[in-house]
């Protein structure tokens, strides 16, 4: 593939790439100190009532396969390094979604001695979904907003 912007196929390829990216966001989930509430709501979005596979979202086990890192919880000292490593293992382009109030701001866990901070102090975050925990619908709403923003890029 050539990278010459004047090459007419380039725009078509770019459009195709963006289309594929928006329609196939494979996700990986990392809990860096959450109370579990957000995690089960994320899992609930996979189940028949919400079925996020409608949007092409699949939960992957290996960071190498994932496009979107879904983070929950404040970042604890012990989990920080693993969170970073998981992010580094993901291939480009990658996106980060922070789910839950404590992932965004620390929530109730502000000032706890083993909490380093919230997600965006450790990783660049692309979308925030507040709630304690957010309803599965709210998570879908957040994912849709993230995909819209990718489309716009």
């Amino acid at each position: 593939m050539t990278t010459d912007p004047n090459y007419p196929w380039q725009t078509v390829f770019d459009k195709l790439k963006t289309w594929a990216r928006v329609n196939s966001p494979w996700a990986i989930h990392f809990n860096s100190g959450s109370c579990n509430g957000c995690d089960i709501e994320i899992l609930a979005t996979l189940t028949p009532r919400y079925d996020i596979e409608r949007f092409g979202v699949k939960l992957q086990g290996s960071p190498r396969h994932a496009d979107v890192l879904i983070c929950t919880g404040p970042v604890t000292r012990q989990a920080r390094e693993r969170l970073l490593r998981t992010y580094e293992q993901m291939p480009e382009p990658k996106f980060v979604v922070a789910v839950g109030s404590c992932a965004i701001s620390g929530g109730v866990f502000q000032g706890c001695y083993n909490v380093v901070g919230h997600i965006d102090e450790v990783l660049p975050v692309n979308a925030y979904i507040p709630g304690c925990p957010p309803r599965p619908e709210a998570i879908i709403d957040g994912v849709v907003k993230l995909l819209e923003s990718i489309k716009g890029k």
Binding site: A20, S24, T47, D51
Partner: peptide
């Protein structure tokens, strides 16, 4: 008992993977 993926899902998956960084 759920809806499942859209018809072009595997195509989008493959195109996306082809366009992704390979580590």
């Amino acid at each position: 008992n759920r809806i499942g993926p859209r018809w072009f899902q595997p195509f989008a998956d493959v195109v996306k993977l082809l366009a992704k960084e390979e580590i």
